[in-house]
């Protein structure tokens, strides 16, 4: 009897705190909300979103047998709409038998080398991006949900430290712009909060699909800092931190951005 009352009491407390959390509304904004209406429409309309061409290509690659093993992704994973749903929402993650996290592209390359017995695809390669965007698209509209994994904590902390490090000739940190001054205008453009909600993204400035790494490098170049090589673990650490920071926001892949 007491136990039952305790359970009911606890449930009430949780419900109340949940309601309170809802009232203290989430003020985080996806970059989508700061785009013009025309770009929002372009992203929303699958026939106008240029990223969808790469999703289609990724779908073809998913079913294509490659490598010495002559296996396709589908041979192991089946229907991506089922097997890949939610995967991008919880990446980066630590692969089985490893002690370091990989991003989605890194995971795809592990599948290539380990299971398909194929060469890894180079960073920003079209097929690699197409596969990544195809996989991430299966999580569109799902909430970003980083897993509980204490092994990731140290890497997240490293990402947070990089995020707050003042660097480059202009001596700026990610946090100075994207935490302290988000919503203000840099050269007339609204500074976004830097939530990685739609990667890989189609960026009009690139006229191409590109990864979060490529986007991070754009900022590093902007503050005149030395960009890490494309395969550097620092990008994965930053992504881990950013995904934690964006927890609960919805994935939009493939996002369109100016």
């Amino acid at each position: 009897m007491t136990a039952r009352l305790l359970v009911i009491g606890l449930a009430l407390v949780f419900a109340a705190s949940y309601a309170a959390a809802q009232v203290g509304a989430d003020k985080r904004r996806s970059g989508y909300q700061d785009m013009g209406e025309a770009l929002q429409k372009m992203q929303d309309d699958d026939t106008a979103n240029p990223g969808m061409l790469f999703v289609q290509l990724g779908g073809q690659l998913w079913n294509r047998a490659v490598g010495a093993a002559d296996k396709s992704c589908a041979d192991c994973h089946g229907d991506a709409a089922v097997s890949m749903k939610g995967v991008a929402a919880r990446y980066p993650a630590i692969p089985q038998g490893s002690d370091r996290p990989v991003d989605l592209e890194g995971r795809i390359n592990l599948c290539r080398t380990e299971h398909q017995k194929a060469e890894p695809l180079p960073p920003e390669n079209r097929d690699l991006l197409a596969l990544a965007v195809y996989v991430a698209h299966q999580s569109r509209d799902l909430q970003i949900a980083p897993p509980y994994d204490p092994r990731l904590d140290a890497f997240r902390r490293e990402g947070a430290e990089i995020y707050r490090l003042r660097q480059g000739q202009l001596n700026l940190s990610c946090a100075i712009c994207h935490d302290d001054n988000a919503g203000k205008k840099l050269a007339g453009i609204v500074i976004p909060e830097a939530h990685p909600t739609g990667y890989p993204i189609y960026r009009l400035e690139w006229q191409a699909l590109g990864s979060l790494k490529r986007r991070l490098r754009n900022c590093l170049v902007g503050i005149r800092a030395e960009a890490w090589p494309l395969d550097a673990p620092e990008y994965v650490a930053l992504e881990l931190y950013l995904m934690q920071r964006a927890r609960g926001l919805k994935l939009e892949t493939p996002a369109v951005r100016p």
Binding site: N171, N181, E226
Partner: peptide
Amino acid sequence: TIMPAYYRIEGLHRVARNFEGRTI
């Protein structure tokens, strides 16, 4: 201050190679 120091080279981190040792 978030304003970069336009004529200082010390105390900076990870400056890109092409700007290393140069003031803004």
